[in-house]
Simulated assay, not measured.
Amino acid sequence: MGSSETVFARTSAALSCLLLFAGLRKPNLNREASKKALEHKKEIDKRLGRPFIQTNPYEGGVEVDIAMRDVGGLL
């Protein structure tokens, strides 16, 4: 293997790794909206006196307040 082939192989491998890592980092097109929603959730949790728990967007949209009196037949 000649010197130029070695340089080409190393350059090709480096470029492949760069493209692989760039492709694996899935771009978040709603990055600003996600940050704003996270800050809003933190403010709501602080205001309600709840601990902040990291959730996904689907879990974050569900809020259920249940007390013992709401559970049928227990009280």
Rank of each mutant, 00 (worst) to 15 (best):
I53S: 00
R10C: 14
I44Q: 00
S4D: 07
C17S: 07
L29V: 07
E5D: 11
N28E: 14
T55R: 06
N30K: 08
R50H: 02
F8A: 15
L20M: 02
K42A: 11
L24T: 08
S16R: 11
A14L: 10
L29E: 03
A9V: 15
F52Q: 00
T6Q: 07
R47P: 00
G60C: 11
M68G: 01
G2V: 11
A33N: 05
V62L: 06
G60I: 01
S3A: 13
P57Y: 05
E39K: 14
P27N: 04
L75P: 09
M1W: 07
S3Q: 05
I66E: 00
H40V: 15
L19T: 04
G60N: 08
T11C: 08
A14K: 08
R25Y: 13
A33M: 10
D45T: 07
V62R: 00
K35P: 01
Y58D: 04
E39V: 15
S16E: 11
F21A: 09
F21H: 05
L20T: 03
I53L: 08
E5W: 09
L15V: 09
T11D: 02
L15T: 10
I44H: 00
L75G: 11
S12P: 01
P51F: 06
E5N: 12
R31I: 14
S16C: 11
R50K: 03
P27T: 11
D65N: 07
I53M: 01
V71N: 01
F52S: 00
A22S: 10
V64D: 01
S4T: 08
L74Y: 07
E39L: 15
I66T: 03
K36H: 09
N28S: 14
K46G: 02
L74W: 09
D45H: 12
D70A: 07
I44R: 01
N28I: 15
T11H: 06
A67D: 03
A22K: 08
I44F: 02
H40G: 11
D70G: 13
E43W: 09
V64I: 13
F21V: 15
L20S: 04
P51V: 12
R31L: 15
F21E: 05
K42T: 02
L74I: 15
I44Y: 00
K36R: 12
S34M: 09
L20C: 04
A33L: 13
A13I: 12
F21W: 07
D65S: 07
S3F: 12
R31W: 11
S16F: 14
V71S: 02
P27L: 14
E32N: 08
L48A: 03
P27F: 05
L18E: 03
V71H: 02
N28A: 13
R50F: 11
K26H: 11
C17D: 04
L48Q: 04
L15H: 02
S16W: 09
K36D: 04
L20A: 04
K42W: 01
A37T: 10
A22V: 15
S12V: 14
L38S: 02
S34N: 12
R25M: 15
G61V: 10
P51G: 08
N56Q: 06
A67R: 06
L19E: 02
E39R: 12
E43A: 14
D45G: 01
L15M: 05
L74R: 07
A22M: 13
L19I: 06
G61L: 10
L29R: 04
T6E: 09
L24F: 06
R47S: 08
K36Q: 14
P27K: 08
E39M: 15
Q54M: 06
K46Q: 13
F21Y: 08
S4N: 04
V64M: 09
E5F: 13
